[in-house]
Design a protein around this nucleic acid. Sequence first.
DNA 1: ATCGAACTTTTTGATATCGAAATAATAACA
DNA 2: TGTTATTATTTCGATATCAAAAAGTTCGAT
Lengths: 154, 154
Amino acid sequence: MGTHFKGTQDQMIALDTYIKLTRASDSIQARLSNAASMQSLTISQFGVLEALMHLGPLSQNELGTKILKSNSNMTTVIDNLEKRNLVKRQRSIVDRRMIEVFLTPTGKDLIEGLFPHHVLAIQEQFSVLTTEEQIALGDLLRKLGRGENEQHKE
Amino acid sequence: MGTHFKGTQDQMIALDTYIKLTRASDSIQARLSNAASMQSLTISQFGVLEALMHLGPLSQNELGTKILKSNSNMTTVIDNLEKRNLVKRQRSIVDRRMIEVFLTPTGKDLIEGLFPHHVLAIQEQFSVLTTEEQIALGDLLRKLGRGENEQHKE
DNA sequence: ATCGAACTTTTTGATATCGAAATAATAACA
DNA sequence: TGTTATTATTTCGATATCAAAAAGTTCGAT
């Protein structure tokens, strides 16, 4: 147990697992960020391009929901993608509050070229685990991500 | 499988597990950031104060290693903690390249007051998993965080 | 038809985060 | 003893990230 904390057994295990979760996620993220498959895209930029590739044009709000980022952050990320001519904005005709974000041909080519390499990089990162371990891990993470125990409305 | 990607079975599982890892980590982080136990501290600020509380004075470089952040980032984080009088810098006498970072009395009181609540918040987040599940999860995450398969020097 | 609630995006101001280059100090070694 | 390599921190410029407030749009309910 890598901690200097003295509490109940239950607390120590939770704290230890939390530290491992953070470290594993940060480490994987850092390794993937440096991978050639990311070119000069950030994780969020990559996530936006990937969502547009798989799902077609989306509003900024929808994109934010997909990649778990705030709306104000989406404005910034889309700004930077637009500067590089990878996406285009277009006010929605049906609901003028929304802005539809599209891949440009350049953006489409880029993400379609990078994505397969990205998958290979991920596959390699996870190759330290067997298929069964990955599935078991995914199950535990899913429970954690959903976080069902919500009886704490302070 | 929540993905729109067609690849080998192995790739799809790795990609799916990767997405779950990212989402679980982001979700937990976001919930803890909003918890009362964080007061107005960021995750990194909290991590620095916690390390200093448990380990005593450390150099910025050591702190960066502990919380997995770059040296230049540590300069910024320590700057902001210093502004709020929670830590103090002092050039090391033995090696004048280093800066020792200390908790001020205010900083010490703050982190000692917050830490137990932080542990409770983490314990609650992880209570969706049994003790055995948390231990199993920790084992898988440890392997992943270490990332042994390093035969990819391009 | 209008008023107010709800929704989408932007702006603003603060902090985080990195890599690269600059600066300063120590260590290695010839 | 110099000279070079290494190490620790800072600065700079770019991007990310959030919450809160502002601005514009739509919707609901009268």
